[in-house]
Design a binder for these strands. Structure first.
Lengths: 185, 185
DNA sequence: TTGACTATACCGACTGGACGGTATAGTAGC
DNA sequence: GCTACTATACCGTCCAGTCGGTATAGTCAA
């Protein structure tokens, strides 16, 4: 690990930003380098190929996933509330990484698909633990997936607002409570 | 319109297949033409540009959507059962078109994302009509979205089976019934 | 303390291949 | 003779990856 808040990290963030804003096609090495404020050569010094860049991005995503699960388990409002409310916008570093991964998965990069599937499974485990019923947990995680993917894929075409305090989410959570979900762990 | 599966249709289907199998990057004009068994010149005779091909694909998707909604409304097992069970595999022409659209969404052009959003809205309308409650309908459509996008994005990484008669879907539908959804119109 | 050498971090011109699109000449069937 | 193609060649652009070079800091030995 090099000392300063490094070029390597800036490159990863630039890649993520470009995936979100312009899709996989727009996230070229030149564009990523420019965004990160390094030259193309500099980028390729840190990541020897585009493939290695994808690998690095996914590794960071998996780290953020573990962090987010810790936060989720400690959330004062409960796991279910947390997972549904944070399924909706692009605010946190984790949200952004997830949306970027969804963009990557669209282009059939199997690694992004596998990463997404494993994140989904982690959530399912945690929610199952909390609500006690595997099928109820599955329904909840699917709703979360639906919210995520809608914001990931529909972009400007979306009808869903991206506000985690939206009262429509309150109502959605009330309906979810009917499934038998404990709203607190 | 000529008699058998016309070259035009074959081109559209080949494009769809390639989107599903190889993503947007793999669906090049050369690859689509080869898959459809026409020459590149032949493809460009029918669709003057890749843009026109996308347009043609989306037009067919929207036709299939209207057909599917008619089928859904007439489904003997009810709208909710139908929408959840058919959210899961790549069997029908409509399913395949939807998965392909998810691959295309927001990659280069917002049209696929807009189309997806409008299909989502049509479903929401229909389900709201049937179950009577907008929030319950939203939860159901989100579960359907979750199932769809999981099969669209996770590909080989998926843990979800793609079998509409899977008993896990039966259990999921039982849980959804607790939301207050009428399982028949 | 200075000069030789090494490692790390980065630059940017260039190459080669892929891809969208154009063009043109020709063919089979109605 | 028109529609619906096939076949092939070619062009310009974009893009991943290569390569030679530069800058800086640190090591070490004479």
């Amino acid at each position: 690990m090099p000392r300063p808040a490094s070029a390597r990290d800036r490159v990863l963030t630039a890649y993520e930003d470009l995936l979100i804003e312009s899709g996989e096609r727009g996230a070229t090495l030149d564009a990523v380098a420019a965004r990160a404020g390094v030259s193309k050569g500099g980028l390729l010094y840190h990541f020897g190929s585009k493939d290695a860049l994808v690998e690095g991005f996914i590794a960071r995503l998996m780290d953020l996933t573990e962090e987010d699960i810790d936060i989720m388990l400690a959330a004062p409002e409960g796991v279910v509330d947390y997972i549904i409310r944070t399924s909706v916008n692009e605010g946190t570093a984790f949200d952004r990484a997830l949306i970027a991964a969804a963009r990557l998965a669209q282009t059939a990069d199997p690694r992004a698909g596998v990463a997404l599937a494993s994140i989904h499974d982690r959530w399912l485990d945690v929610v199952t633990q909390v609500v006690g019923d595997a099928t109820v947990a599955r329904a909840i995680v699917l709703i979360s997936d639906g919210l995520y993917y809608n914001s990931a894929l529909m972009g400007m075409g979306a009808t869903e607002p991206n506000d985690p305090t939206d009262e429509r989410l309150d109502r959605l959570l009330e309906v979810i409570a009917r499934l038998g979900a404990a709203s607190r762990p």
